[in-house]
């Protein structure tokens, strides 16, 4: 049964998550990504015809608008740094609290273990949503002020929305790893190494899939976790149902296994 005071648990966890070093860093970096996207676009516009890519001036190959700026910001956000920071926050919330023995103090309270995990997961989900919001508002808002409001805002908004469940997939993986390794750095390194291996394997499978009678290899690559975590990219090149089903499965599997572990683990 859900504790009657679950909302208090969630709000307390959220406050803790946002005030912790990893939470503050995630919000600040999200803001920096938004501002850098605006700065980068402004620089590109300023250079205009002087700078060129493949012989074509920048102002001919780039579209300068608020929507484009927010689009670049989203890609930069999802590429590397924010996922790392979200993994750090996840590690601090589970592995860090286990190691510092502050998790024990929560488990001694009259609430079921699953509700503690749920409160922490929800708090991390809100942190992820806030980082998306900060990047979107800063890059989109300032971009629109500087470059105008033209552009395709609808697909971009879907891209931002779709990034949230992708983040949840990453958080779920992070929670599972955190409950096994119980070390913050190992959570970040472990998931990143796995995703790197996943990427290499998908590339290999795609290559093998081009060989006659081995097309199945390419199909397998589409169901791998790395592909699922990139579901948000659908706003750029068309939505892929397989990725979304994979993402849902990944979240369910990771959270399910993490919950089993959390319910049974000894907490010294």
């Amino acid at each position: 049964m859900i504790p009657r005071h679950f909302h208090r648990m969630f709000l307390a966890e959220l406050r803790k998550t946002l005030l912790r070093g990893s939470g503050i860093a995630a919000i600040l970096i999200a803001a920096a990504v938004g501002l850098l996207a605006v700065g980068g676009m402004a620089a590109a516009q300023y250079l205009g015809g002087e700078a060129a890519v493949n012989g074509l001036p920048l102002d001919q190959i780039m579209e300068f608008s608020g929507a484009t700026t927010a689009g670049w910001a989203l890609r930069a956000r999802n590429f590397f740094l924010l996922p790392l920071l979200l993994l750090w926050a996840t590690g601090a919330t589970f592995a860090g609290e286990f190691k510092e023995r502050t998790l024990r103090e929560l488990l001694a309270r009259p609430v079921p273990r699953w509700s503690i995990m749920a409160a922490k997961f929800l708090a991390l989900s809100v942190l992820s949503a806030l980082t998306l919001l900060v990047t979107a508002v800063l890059s989109g808002g300032l971009g629109a002020l500087l470059f105008g409001i033209e552009g395709e805002w609808g697909p971009l908004a879907l891209g931002y929305l779709a990034s949230w469940p992708s983040d949840l997939g990453l958080l779920s993986m992070g929670i599972l790893v955190a409950l096994v390794v119980r070390n913050v750095a190992a959570v970040v390194v472990g998931v990143v190494l796995y995703l790197a291996a996943d990427l290499v394997l998908r590339l290999l499978l795609s290559l093998v899939g081009k060989l006659p009678s081995l097309e199945l290899a390419a199909e397998i690559a589409r169901f791998m976790p790395g592909e699922a975590l990139a579901a948000w990219e659908g706003y750029l090149d068309g939505w892929n149902m397989v990725s979304w089903i994979g993402l849902a499965g990944l979240i369910a599997l990771c959270l399910g296994l993490a919950l089993l572990r959390f319910m049974r683990m000894d907490v010294p």
Partner: peptide, 9 residues
């Protein structure tokens, strides 16, 4: 203490 109170309800 606030955190503990929140979890204790």
């Amino acid at each position: 203490l606030e955190l503990a109170c929140a979890y204790a309800g």
